[in-house]
């Protein structure tokens, strides 16, 4: 391994960590924050027949989780290509 390649791979890992942090921040926000901590305050507002806090606790957080995994998949596939470590 050349010194250059080692540095490249460390940069790859750092970018991965940043992407993970951002995704986990959103994961925490929709479930623990919106669905639990401020759920009563959000319930004062409605979307259709749903109080918003109740919606996050029952549906919104789960739908966001699905979207989060897929944006992570997308961003990591791009990152693999950028650093040329993608699998054939």
């Amino acid at each position: 391994m050349s010194v250059h390649a080692t540095k490249e791979l460390q940069a790859y890992w750092k970018e991965n960590l940043v992407i993970i942090m951002v995704h986990l921040a959103i994961w925490f926000f929709v479930s623990f924050f919106c669905g639990i901590m401020v759920v009563d305050q959000l319930d004062a507002y409605m979307i259709g027949g749903f109080p918003i806090g109740f919606w996050f606790a029952n549906q919104g957080s789960i739908l966001t989780f699905v979207v989060l995994i897929w944006t992570y998949v997308y961003m990591m596939n791009k990152l693999d290509k950028k650093y040329d470590v993608h699998e054939g």
Partner: peptide
Amino acid sequence: GRDGSFYLMGWTGGYVLLAMLFGP
């Protein structure tokens, strides 16, 4: 009622952790 939501969030949110922290 709403208290039951910890089953819903708790038994799905772990997959976000699996996808990013463990699986690959």
